[in-house]
């Protein structure tokens, strides 16, 4: 049996690992997006006492290697009496880590948001919450679309680190097959194929979304 035939016969393992990767990725990036929006909202300025702690938190996360955060959540939290299973530790680490990156992306864009639009909103009787969700956030998301696209791809790649904390995802599947049959090259070529395919699909989707924002004059397509 050739190496490729071995892998083909183990295709179920890849498939299960792939589904798990997608599950973790989908959930954690969705939560990360919500965290990013929440950070932006909290930084909107009516809570000055929160600003410094939040900025420190965001910068702290961004300067931390992702792997170490995953380690801390999985191996470190139990010593504080909190025991997460590997899957939840992985999702939590990805969500918080990339949530901070997304928050920082949003913050950068918020700085250049035209103040006149906020004044127009105030003059039309908008209060902070509605103004944020209806007028500011949609534009910030359109404006930062390319950066968000990059962040999706970083997050997808970061799921591979979770093999270290024993999550049975795609890279773990390749790892175990390559160990069992000693065919590392072929096993990893297969997973690279998976990661590429997902990345390409995301790229296309993000590009398509660019038409939506380009029509509105956000010319970052």
């Amino acid at each position: 049996m050739s190496n490729w035939e071995i892998l083909w016969s183990a295709r179920d393992q890849f498939w299960v690992g792939f589904l798990r990767t997608m599950e973790i990725f989908g959930l954690s990036i969705s939560v990360a997006f919500v965290i990013g929006c929440a950070l932006l909202y909290l930084l909107e300025g009516s809570r000055p006492r929160l600003t410094v702690p939040l900025r420190v938190f965001i910068d702290g996360m961004r300067m931390l290697p992702f792997l170490i955060l995953a380690y801390l959540l999985y191996y470190g939290l139990p010593s504080f009496g909190i025991r997460l299973d590997a899957w939840w530790a992985g999702v939590g680490a990805l969500a918080v880590y990339h949530g901070c990156y997304i928050g920082e992306i949003f913050r950068g864009s918020r700085i250049t948001f035209p103040p006149g639009q906020v004044e127009a909103a105030k003059a039309h009787g908008f209060t902070k919450g509605k103004m944020f969700f209806r007028l500011i956030l949609p534009q910030i998301v359109m404006q930062t679309r390319p950066l968000l696209g990059n962040q999706l791809i970083y997050a997808l790649k970061d799921t591979a680190f979770l093999v270290i904390i024993t999550v049975r995802e795609l890279t773990a599947a390749a790892n175990s097959l390559s160990g069992t049959y000693f065919i590392p090259t072929e096993a990893f070529i297969v997973v690279i194929g998976f990661y590429w395919a997902v990345s390409v699909v995301m790229e296309v989707i993000i590009k398509q979304c660019g038409r939506f924002s380009a029509k509105r004059g956000f010319d970052n397509a």
Binding site: G116, E119, F126, R216
Partner: peptide, 24 residues
């Protein structure tokens, strides 16, 4: 209060030099 202010503000309409339409 923020709410009361917004309500009274809504009784005025403002047109700005720089238009300030919402582009999205």
């Amino acid at each position: 209060s923020v709410k009361a202010l917004a309500r009274v503000r809504a009784k005025t309409g403002m047109v700005f030099q720089g238009f300030n339409l919402w582009p999205h």
